[in-house]
Each structure stands twice: as C-alpha cells, then as structure tokens.
C-alpha cells in the first residue's frame, strides 16, 4: 500500500531533481513532459493501444491464431443470445436513462420549492455511494420470494400477499425481469441527475420567475415555460453521462441473474465470451461494438 503511493511520489521527485540540474533551455523544454509524460505513457498502454489491439483481435478466431474476417461480427449480430442482449441493452438505455433523468429532474424541481431540500436530497443521493453489487443484494432482498403458504420475506411480495395477491418470482418472468433490474439503476443514478438539475435550477434568475408570477402564471406553468426551457442545456447533458454508464452496465445483471431468464446484456455477454468460452475473437468484437455505440452519444 505504502510502496504504491510512495513509489510514484519518489518517481516525480527524482525526475524533477534531474531536470533541475540541466541548463535552463533544456529544463524548460523537458519540464512539460515530466508533468504530462507519465499520464500519456499510462494512457497509451491502457487505453490507446488496447483499442487498436482489440480491433485487430476481433478479426481472429478463439485463440487469436487464425484470421477469420468479420465472422465474429456476424456471430454478434445473428446469435440468438446476442440479439436478446441487444434488445435488453436498448431497454436499459431507454428506460434506465430516461427514468433516472426524469425522476432526478422532478425531485430537483420539488426540492427547490421545499424547506426540506437538503435532507431530501441526501436521501435520494445516498444510493450513489453504494456499489452495484451492494445495491444488488439490497434489491435481491426486496425481490426475494418464498413458496406459497410461507410468510414472504421480500418486501414487494409481502406487500402483494398482504393485499391479497399472488406472490411473484420477479426474476423469472420475461421480459419484465429486465425492467425490475433497470429499477436498480434508476434508484442509483437518480441522485446524480438530481444534483445537476438542482444546481441548474438555482441558476434560473429570480426576476424571470417573479415576472411570470406577476403575469399570473401558476406554479406548473412557471416550471413548464420558464424553468425547463432555461435549464434545457443540463437536461440534455445529464442523460449523456447516464447513457454511457448504462451502455456498459455489467455488475447488476451479472450478480443478480447472471444473465439467466433472458436478462443478458452486451457487457455480460462479453465477459462470458472471454472467461467462460475463452473466445477472445468474439469478446473483442463485442467490445468494439460497445465502443462504436458510445461514439455517437458523445
């Protein structure tokens, strides 16, 4: 632990010491690269080169020994499980991103008008600190179900049974199970959307709102015609961030259902291709598809 943190500091100190011994022209020429050099080196090893290498590998077979052309891509777009994964990812993108953004916006609008803003925002924001897998356990427990006749210990089923309904095995009913998993993402990322929207709402000039009031606009009218147009910039940028997170969603699916019952997503398929089927070609092809899908978002 100490060796890691200390090592890197010593590296910088030594480099700086060396540069200071040089003549002043060389010093000003080299110094920038002491500052940015290490970052560039790490980035090329970990992100820049891997992108090219993955592209290269995606045209090869399982152990990367034989060139197979676009076969892996054909697999990715025709395999039945992969198609389910694409459909599910689309659901994640639309419902997850939309849900988190809209809930965040609504809560920010409500909180702005309330005296309890700080406390309320803390509650909503809290899940952001929890890992996907911790959140997974929380929600697994909410969705837990027991056979009929036994007392239900999962919150949702207990409510349903108490209301006279039939208990539900939430994770096994397709295609709704994906939707129940998406709820977890919305639960976690609404806080993010709320914080950004809330800051944007604070920036709406008071005079504008006052003017609206004097003209006799109701609260709802003010929100719809003044506040929302004014913060439209934020309303566009927030979903982009959440979209990128959602596209790569892995932990929730992997820990909750492991992709069973038709809940597979693209990232969990990639993991399985690499570590379960040991097919590096397909794994790379799927990674490239994910990568290309992100670009238009930015």
């Amino acid at each position: 632990m100490i060796s890691g943190g200390g090592g890197i500091s010593i590296l910088y100190l030594v480099a700086n010491g060396l540069v200071n011994r040089l003549s002043s022209t060389w010093r000003s020429r080299l110094q920038p690269f002491i500052f940015v050099g290490p970052a560039l080196a790490v980035l090329s090893w970990y992100l820049l080169l891997p992108t090219l290498r993955t592209l290269y590998l995606s045209f090869f077979n399982a152990n990367s020994a034989k060139f197979t052309g676009i076969e892996n891509y054909i697999f990715a777009f025709t395999d039945r499980v992969m198609l389910t994964a694409f459909r599910n990812n689309l659901l994640w993108l639309i419902i997850g991103t939309g849900g988190a953004t809209i809930f965040g916006l609504v809560i920010a609008l409500l909180a702005d008008r309330s005296r309890f803003e700080k406390i309320a925002e803390s509650f909503i924001f809290l899940p952001m600190a929890i890992s996907f897998i911790g959140a997974g356990v929380i929600w697994k427990f909410v969705y837990a179900f027991k056979p009929a006749g036994v007392e239900q210990i999962g919150l949702l089923n207990a409510v349903i049974v108490a209301l006279g309904g039939e208990h539900v095995g939430w994770f096994t009913i397709r295609p709704w199970n994906t939707f129940f998993l998406i709820v977890i993402l919305i639960w976690m990322w609404t806080g993010y959307s709320m914080v950004l929207h809330s800051a944007a709402i604070k920036g709406v000039p008071k005079e504008l709102i006052e003017a609206g009031r004097i003209d006799g606009a109701g609260e709802i009218r003010i929100v719809l015609s003044i506040v929302i147009p004014y913060i439209s910039g934020t309303i566009v940028t927030v979903p982009t961030t959440i979209l990128i997170v959602t596209l790569k969603i892995f932990d929730i699916v992997f820990s909750m259902t492991n992709g069973l019952y038709g809940t597979e997503v693209i990232a969990s398929q990639q993991y399985k291709q690499i570590f379960k089927f040991l097919h590096y070609g397909r794994g790379s092809a799927i990674a490239m598809i994910l990568f290309i899908a992100v670009i238009p978002v930015i």
Partner: peptide, 8 residues
C-alpha cells in the same frame, strides 16, 4: 474508451 475494450 470503455475499460471493456482494454480487457483482453
């Protein structure tokens, strides 16, 4: 660039 691309 997502980390998935760098895994292999």
């Amino acid at each position: 660039v997502s980390l998935q691309i760098a895994l292999i």
